[in-house]
């Protein structure tokens, strides 16, 4: 059984890699994947704390987060496909309609 410190550290590093990916990539698909990675890091924390406290609430919540992540991916990829039809590109630099 690993120590809690290790779990927290790995989960934090995964989360920061996800944040860095969202900040530096131009491709919308990869930004979506990085968001998924951040949700997964949070899930790892939830499961570790569920184990630590000996209750099942954390695992149940992590399962719900997983379902929400699936819904998010479905809608996000549909938006990406619609965007590609409209703009013929999936770079976030091209998505600047609100800028005027």
């Amino acid at each position: 059984m690993p120590s809690m410190n290790l779990v927290l550290l790995i989960s934090f590093l995964l989360f920061s890699i996800g944040v860095a990916g969202v900040l530096i990539r131009r491709n919308v698909l990869i930004i979506l994947m990085c968001a998924e990675l951040m949700l997964n890091a949070a899930n790892l924390n939830l499961i570790a704390f569920a184990r630590h406290s000996g209750t099942v609430a954390g695992q149940a919540f992590a399962l719900m987060v997983m379902g929400l992540a699936a819904a998010e991916v479905a809608v996000g990829l549909a938006i990406v496909v619609a965007l590609y039809r409209k703009k013929n590109s999936i770079s976030v630099d091209e998505i600047n309609l609100l800028k005027g």
Binding site: M1, P2, V7, L29, L32, M33, E36, N40, N43, I47, A48, A50, R51, Q59, A62, L63, M66, A69, A70, V73, A74, L77
Partner: peptide
Amino acid sequence: CIGAEFMGVAQLLVYAGGIVVLF
């Protein structure tokens, strides 16, 4: 490894089976 067997299998099914293929 941290004793959440069901979550591990669900992760395999949902992510490796579904979301990656969608991506």
